[in-house]
Amino acid sequence: MVVLRQPDHEAFSEFASARSASLFRTAYLVIGDYQLAQDLVQESLVKTYLAWPRLRDVAKAEAYTRRVIVTTCISWRRRRSFSERPATHVPDASVTDPTTLLPEQGELWTAVGHLPPRQRAAVVLRFCEDLSQAQTAELMGCSVGSVKRHTSLALDKLRAEMGARFSPPFVDEQAVTP
């Protein structure tokens, strides 16, 4: 008999309020769109809320949510609807993306946006979030070897697209190991 237990509203709300900004940064890095990053965080927090009763260690809730963000993002980007939206479902132009107010987003941001979802996730988690290969693998739900391969392919594509204007990660960054 499967019993669905009720989550602890207060503890979850406290967690969500405290960590949503940090979670949003991860979401924005992996999906690259301000509005979709908001949706991604909300969806991931809903999933965390459902899993709350069985999260044995609430301190790990953030890591759990971050993993949901990454895997959900990859799932969304693999769907046909992500790259082909009907004309009746265009984003609300009145909603301003605050990042557009910042100085030039840069060619690199655009180039990262061209990467396939797993490669993008690997490279931003490794070199923007400064996670180790093992931590990145944990979030992506894959092996360390897979992270290495996706990272290598991503860096190759960034070099190919940007040439000398791209500064690859320092060797010590790449050498980070668990």
Partner: peptide
């Protein structure tokens, strides 16, 4: 100027995070 991946982190950090409706998330859950 060359661009590094660390710049993206700074770029995102500079963006104000949105406010989330935690009660709405709980209601959806």
């Amino acid at each position: 100027m060359n661009a590094s991946l660390r710049d993206l982190r700074r770029h995102v950090d500079a963006a104000p995070p949105p406010q989330f409706d935690v009660e709405g998330i709980v209601a959806r859950g």
